[in-house]
Nucleic acid binder design. Sequence first.
DNA 1: GACAAGGTTTGAACCGTACTCAAAGTTTGA
DNA 2: TCAAACTTTGAGTACGGTTCAAACCTTGTC
Lengths: 197, 197
Amino acid sequence: MRMVRESKITLERPDMRAHVLKAALLAIEEVGFTQLRVKDIADRAGMSTSHVLYYFGSRDRILISTLLMSEADLDERRGAELARLDARAALDRLVELYLPRGRQDVRWRLWAQVIARPPDDEETLLRLDGFFRSWAAELAAIVRRLSDLGAEAAEDFAVRHCRLMDGLSGDVLLGIPGHDALWAKETVLASMRRELA
Amino acid sequence: MRMVRESKITLERPDMRAHVLKAALLAIEEVGFTQLRVKDIADRAGMSTSHVLYYFGSRDRILISTLLMSEADLDERRGAELARLDARAALDRLVELYLPRGRQDVRWRLWAQVIARPPDDEETLLRLDGFFRSWAAELAAIVRRLSDLGAEAAEDFAVRHCRLMDGLSGDVLLGIPGHDALWAKETVLASMRRELA
DNA sequence: GACAAGGTTTGAACCGTACTCAAAGTTTGA
DNA sequence: TCAAACTTTGAGTACGGTTCAAACCTTGTC
C-alpha cells in the first residue's frame, strides 16, 4: 500500500508536469486569468482534463505549481542576466524583473491568486519563502556593491524594499488610476536612491 | 426605460444592502473564506440567494462591497480612536489597525480577493484609492507631530510605509513560517523608527 | 377604495465547471 | 509471456453561481 503511494510520487515524470505548467502559462495569457478553466490548460497541453487533474489533484495546485515553476525559472534567468551588468544597471534591472509589467502580468496574477487562496502544506510555504529570500539576497548583494552598508544593513534594506515592491504591485494589479508599472518602478527607485545617497 | 433604471438605483434601500454586507462579514468568519458560498450569506441575512443577487448582481460584487463597507467603517473608527492618543501611541495603534491580525483576518482576505479579481469599473477603483489616500494622510499627520519633516516628506514617508505594510501583509496571509502578525508589526515599526530617529 | 405600475421576493430551473470513477490501454520487470 | 503497477480517458456527479418567470407587496392616482 505505502509502496504504491511512494512509487507514484517518484514516478511522476517531471517533464510531464513541466509540460502542463507551460501549457498553463500559455493558457493564462491567451484566455485571461479570470476566465481560465482547467480545460483551457488541458487543450493546450494536448490531453484531457482528467489527466491534468491526475497529476495535480486540483485546480489550485496547478496554479500554485505554475507559480513555483515561473518563479524558479525567473530565479535562474535573473542570476545569469544581472551578473553581466554593473551595479547601478543591475539594481535598475532587478527592480524591473521583480515588478509586474502591467495589470495582466501573469506571474503577479499567480501571486495574487496564491495569496488569496494560500496553500496549507508547509513544504510549499517554505519554497515560497525561499524565493523571497533569494530575491532579497540578490538585492542585498547589489546594494553592497553600491554603498558601504554592512551585511546586516544591506539585508535589512533588501527585505524592506522587496516588501515595498510587493505593496506597490498590488496597486498595479488593481489598476488604480495613475498607479501603473512605470509609477511603481519610479517609486521604488526613488526610495532606494534616497537611502543610498 | 431609463426611468426604470434610475429609480431602481435610487430605491435600493441602503439599510438592506448594509444588512447583507454585515451578514457577509459574519458568514466569512463562521464558514471561512475559501468555503464561502452565496447561500451562507443569504442564510445569515434571512433571505434567499436570489434576493441577495438581486441587490448585488454577482458574488464578486458582494465581496467588493463588503470590503468597501469594512474599510469605510474602519476609516471612521480609526479617526475617532487615534484622535485621543498622543503621537507615539497613535503611530503604534495605526500600524496595529492597518495590519492583519492573523492569517484569517477578514478585512485582509477581502483585499487579497479583490486584488486577485479586480473590479473593472472606474468608480470602485477610485473609492479604493480614496482609502489608500486616507490611510496615508492619517499616517502623515501623525509623523509630522513626531518629527520635523515637511508636508511633502511626511506624505512620502506615509505612502512608502503603507505600501510596505501591504507587502508584509502578504507574508502574513500566506502563513510564511515566522512571518506572523507580530513580526509584521515589529518590522514596520523598526523601519519607521529608523527613519524618524 | 380600486386599480395600475413598478418594485421586491422567491423557488425552480439552468449552466458551467471542478472533480470522481471505473474501465481500457500501456509500460515494466520477473 | 504474464501480471502488476502506472497512465489515460470519457462519462458521470456534485455543487454553486446565475437567470427567470411568476407571486407578492407598495405606492400613488383617479
